[in-house]
Simulated assay, not measured.
Amino acid sequence: MGYFLRLLQLLSTCVAFSLVAGVSTLQAAAGSWSIFVWCFCFVMTLIILIVELCGLQSRLHLSWDGFLITCASCATFLCLSGSVIFATACIQLLPHSPFGDHAIAVTAFSSLASVAYATEVVWTCARSGEFSCSVLTLPGLFHRLEIFVACIIFAFISSPHLYVHQPALEWCVAVYSICFLLSAVTLLLNWYNWDNRLPVPVPLVHLGLTLLSALLYASAVVLWPLYQFNGEFGGQPQRSSDVSCRDKLTSYICTWDQRLAVAVLTAVNLLIYVVDLVDLARRFFY
Rank of each mutant, 00 (worst) to 15 (best):
N269A: 01
L182V: 07
C254N: 02
N190A: 10
H96D: 07
T186K: 09
W64P: 08
A214Y: 02
C54F: 05
E170D: 10
L198M: 07
L249Y: 07
L198I: 01
F67N: 07
L26I: 06
N196G: 06
W191T: 07
W224M: 00
C179H: 01
Y176I: 00
I69Y: 03
W194M: 15
V121Y: 11
I253Y: 02
V173M: 01
S114A: 15
G231H: 09
L46R: 04
A105I: 11
S111N: 05
D242T: 14
V43T: 13
A116V: 09
I50W: 05
A75T: 05
G100H: 11
S159Q: 15
L8S: 12
I91Y: 06
G235E: 08
C90M: 15
S32V: 09
G208F: 01
C90H: 04
V149K: 01
L280T: 05
L182R: 04
L49D: 10
A29K: 00
L138S: 08
D276P: 04
P225N: 01
L277R: 00
W123Q: 13
V173I: 09
G208H: 00
L68V: 15
I85C: 03
G66Q: 09
L249V: 09
S18W: 08
G100F: 06
V185G: 01
C74M: 10
I147V: 08
I157W: 00
A281M: 04
H102R: 12
Y286A: 08
V43P: 00
L62G: 09
R259Y: 14
W38L: 12
S183A: 13
W33D: 08
V243T: 12
W123T: 10
E120K: 14
H143C: 02
T250V: 10
C71P: 01
S12A: 13
S241F: 12
S32H: 11
C79E: 02
C54M: 13
A126Y: 06
H102Q: 13
A220H: 01
Y252Q: 09
L62T: 13
L181K: 03
V221C: 15
R59L: 10
C179W: 02
A103V: 08
A103N: 02
I47Y: 05
C254V: 07
A118G: 12
L204V: 08
Y227G: 07
F36Y: 12
I272M: 07
I91E: 10
L5C: 01
L5Q: 05
S251T: 10
V106Q: 05
L112M: 15
L181Y: 06
D257L: 03
F42M: 06
C125E: 14
A218M: 13
D65L: 00
F109K: 06
G208C: 09
L136H: 15
Q57N: 14
N230R: 05
T119H: 04
L198C: 04
A263K: 00
L249Q: 07
C54G: 04
A281L: 05
S132V: 12
W123G: 03
V149Y: 04
L145Y: 12
E120I: 03
H96M: 06
C151S: 11
V164K: 13
M1G: 08
F77E: 03
Q27M: 07
V51P: 02
M44C: 07
G66M: 03
L8Q: 13
S73W: 10
F17E: 04
V243H: 13
S128G: 15
Q236S: 14
V20Q: 03
C14P: 02
A16S: 14
E52V: 06
Y252A: 06
D247T: 09
T210D: 00
T210I: 03
P199V: 00
A89Y: 01
L162R: 01
T250E: 11
